[in-house]
Amino acid sequence: MNENESRLGRIMDGIGGIVDSYAVTLKHLFRKPITEQYPEQKKVLPERTRARIVLTRDPEGEERCVSCYLCEAVCPTDCISMEGAERGDGRRYALWFRINFARCIFCGLCEEACPTLAIQLTPDFEFSKYHVLDLVYEKEDLLIEGCGKNSEYNYYEHAGVAVGFDKGEHPGEAKPVDVKSNMP
């Protein structure tokens, strides 16, 4: 095949490609549109759809979030902020916790980072607001009553700190060492 032929071939190819594409769009013209007519037709979204974020509770009904700052650290848009504090019983929790949904891109990284399964994305995406500041959600707005996607996990059951469970009472723990006896 000499060069001219290949060039001609390329030109024909190009023209063919253009004509083909016109044909494709033309065919589409006669197909039934696939648009879903939101809001009349609402699709049931899969459970793992990433939209409005909630803070869940553990099976005991306590706030799961321990204010570890991991979600805040991983968030690519820096839209989570919080301040940790200590409750009377030593439990670590978020004194305040806010997500600026005007900035959130619903990437779900926070949920992935959360060691306590506290922060979860839900399929509810319909929460537009007229004012940007109304999209700043505080802990009161985020916290839900239930456990969300996982109904069993309780972080403090697996941690070593004496919150909810005393030292040595967490599953898989030995009795606390008695420092005043050398008996084995």
Partner: peptide, 10 residues
């Protein structure tokens, strides 16, 4: 309208 239909939309 036409663009929509050409792209299988309304």
């Amino acid at each position: 309208k036409l663009l929509g239909r050409l792209q299988i939309r309304y």
